[in-house]
Amino acid sequence: MTDTPNITIVFLLFPGITQLDFTAPAQALSRLPGARLAGAAASLEPIATDSGFAIVPTHDFATCPRADILCIPGGHGVTDALGDAATIDFIARQAAHAQWVTSVCTGAFLLGRAGLLAGKRATTHWGYTHLLPIVGAEHQSARVVEDGHIVTSGGVTSGLDFALTLIARLRGDAVAQAIQLAIEYDPAPPFVGGHPDCAPEAVTAGLKARVYDAAAARMEAALKA
């Protein structure tokens, strides 16, 4: 019987990360047979998330192992990370040898800044999809978009869908289904409305006005800087 090969899964960590962009796919991927997870940041200091608690990296950029799967989460901290040369260089170096290069939410723009989305179909959080052409990507409306070895996913909770999709590619549908069952991922939200396509128009307009119009403008400025 052949041993299951190890697979190294590297997550980029940065201040202002949306913790579920990281922790949701990490929870599923950690159950992948042979998985070894690493959380890499510029230093080993705790990383402040958007949820009021911190995450401690396992590696800094210099000591991080080579990724078989590279995952770039999103968050409002992406706008600052776009201007950090060490972060972008780390993404580019890891992506050069990775079997799969992935993102959750606005992490797509960090892939784009590293030159990895040019000519690719991609997705991101619905509040920012109109900015994908700035990094050379074509928006495809889906929770998970695969274009070659590049896999992007929509906002926040889409990271779990991406992780299960990738597990199925790597180890087969049965393994992915078993992991989905183990974590009891059986969504039955109390409201229909997790995307503008189905949310009440007033709810979408209010959220855009309170959060995403300004956030997208900051993202656009950072991308064009």
Rank of each mutant, 00 (worst) to 15 (best):
S103A: 15
D60G: 14
I69P: 06
S43A: 12
C105E: 05
G83A: 09
P73G: 12
T129D: 06
L131V: 00
V135C: 09
P73W: 03
L37S: 08
L44R: 13
T123K: 01
F109D: 04
A86M: 13
V101C: 10
G52S: 05
V135H: 01
A98M: 04
I69Y: 02
P57G: 12
F109N: 06
T102V: 10
T106P: 06
T49A: 09
T102K: 04
D80C: 12
A24G: 15
P33S: 15
G34T: 14
L32D: 00
T79D: 12
R93N: 13
L131Y: 05
A85K: 10
C105Q: 00
P25R: 01
V135S: 04
V56H: 14
A114M: 02
A81Q: 09
I88V: 12
T49Y: 05
G112L: 02
T102F: 11
R121L: 08
A92W: 04
S30N: 11
H76D: 09
G39S: 14
S103E: 06
A81D: 12
A95R: 04
E138M: 11
P73I: 05
L29M: 13
D84I: 03
F109L: 08
V101Y: 09
L117K: 01
H97V: 14
A54V: 01
T49V: 03
S51K: 09
Y128A: 12
I47H: 01
A35R: 00
H59K: 11
T49S: 13
F61M: 02
A28W: 01
L29Y: 02
Q99R: 15
G115S: 08
T49K: 02
W126S: 07
A95P: 04
P73S: 10
A26H: 04
L29D: 00
T58L: 07
I55E: 01
G127F: 05
G52Q: 04
L111A: 05
S30R: 04
T63M: 07
A122N: 01
I91L: 08
L82F: 09
P73Q: 07
I72P: 01
A114E: 03
A48M: 12
T106I: 05
G39V: 06
D84N: 15
G136Q: 07
G39F: 10
A42K: 14
A42H: 12
A108C: 08
I47P: 00
A86L: 14
R93M: 10
T102W: 11
H76E: 08
L116Y: 08
T87H: 11
A98Y: 00
Q99T: 15
L132W: 02
A26W: 02
A114D: 06
I72G: 00
W100F: 15
T124A: 07
L44E: 08
G74V: 05
C105I: 04
G83F: 05
T63Y: 10
P46S: 03
P46Q: 00
A81H: 10
R31L: 14
I55M: 03
L111M: 01
H125Y: 12
H76W: 11
R113I: 06
A38M: 03
L132R: 04
A118M: 11
S43K: 06
G34F: 15
